[in-house]
Amino acid sequence: MGKFTLCDVELWYNDFKALKNVTMDIGANEITAFIGPSGCGKSTLLKSLNRMNDLVEGCKITGKLLLDGEDIYGGIDVNLLRKRVGMVFQKPNPFPMSVYDNIAFGPRTHGVKSRYRLDEIVEKSLRDAAIWDECNGRLKKSALSLSGGQQQRLCIARALSVEPDVLLMDEPTSALDPISTSKIEDLLAELKKRYTVVIVTHNMQQATRISDRTAFFLLGEMVEYGDTEQIFSLPRDKRTEDYITGRFG
């Protein structure tokens, strides 16, 4: 059984149907990539997995979304869901406070008070996000003084600080330069040993490089879902083939 099980998921923004009949399993300790042209619903689906869509007015969702067999839209505590399912955004969004406080915010939110324990979590999270060496010694400095690529890895560290099972990433490298991008891709390969990663990407090379499974979306519909190798070498659907060979999008 997968980490996430989705069955007949449909989603509306008011009258606009953004997702149609999505049924899929997302495997644990794998990297699953969502690809497709802009407005195809891939980010929308990603945000349904930790209920960030709740913040959007007029958003309505039907169907079943299970995390480890538990209904995400049932009686679950949303804040605990989001603790389990962390998220990294397209644009790095460090809080305007020190590096240390950025990382400590999550654990503090969930009741960690001991200074010693916080120090531990901060170091571990920064190490896991491969940014400890660059941040050590400037933990008290403002997070905004870091470069864009460092800020994004800081945001990954921040997401890891609350010990999630899953990491959702919404085009995490689209605002970054190639060197920062490759650092984050290397990091993802490391992270998937311990976390389930779902990543939305515009960059098909990126999907082939890092993901185990790929889902292709078009106009709110999941057109094809399978092993990344198969999707990119032997797509079953004509529309997938057209997209990955660059005929549209």
Partner: peptide
């Protein structure tokens, strides 16, 4: 809004996100 969303995505409640971030 990204800052607010960043806080909420960590499992912070609305109040915690507003007063903490």
């Amino acid at each position: 809004d990204e800052l607010y969303e960043g806080a909420v995505a960590l499992g912070a409640s609305h109040e915690r996100a507003v007063f903490g971030v």
